[in-house]
């Protein structure tokens, strides 16, 4: 009896696999078709220089030490190193003024490493 159960399970398994061939493909042909991202997706960070008060919390909470904030009186300089960033979103959650937002941009591959260093100045902008 056990043997018959096993054979039956084998047949059911094959039928199940065969049924998959009638289902919709899940593959996306990448550059032409893109994935629909969730709202909470954490991509490349974006600074809003107007809101920044230069408190430096983002520098302290960053586990990868990708952010550096310099405050001289009213002038705020912030350096951001995307090659170190792990997209954890800590800076976004801890920022008291919501000056940092993680955008949904994820195509960050580049052949020039200088593209990954971003420098912000409050008075000058990006």
């Amino acid at each position: 009896m056990i043997i018959f159960n096993k054979i039956w399970a084998l047949i059911i398994g094959h039928i199940t696999v065969f049924k998959h061939s009638f289902k919709k493909r899940v593959t996306l042909e990448y550059p032409e078709q893109k994935q629909v991202l969730p709202e909470t997706f954490r991509g490349k960070p974006v600074w809003n220089c107007e809101k920044c008060i230069g408190c430096g919390i983002c520098e302290r909470v960053c586990p990868a030490a990708a952010v550096k904030v310099d405050k001289n009186n009213d002038n705020i300089n912030s350096y951001f190193d995307l090659s170190r960033c792990i997209m954890c979103g800590n800076c976004m959650y801890y920022c008291p003024k919501h000056a940092i937002r993680l955008s949904s941009e994820y195509e960050l591959a580049t052949d020039n490493k200088n593209d990954l260093y971003i420098y912000f100045n409050k008075s000058e902008g990006v």
Binding site: V17, F18, H20, S21, K23, K24, R25, V26, T27, E29
Partner: peptide
């Protein structure tokens, strides 16, 4: 094999 695993295979 792509058909059975809901992929497209080489395309």
């Amino acid at each position: 094999l792509g058909l059975f695993t809901q992929r497209k295979g080489p395309n």
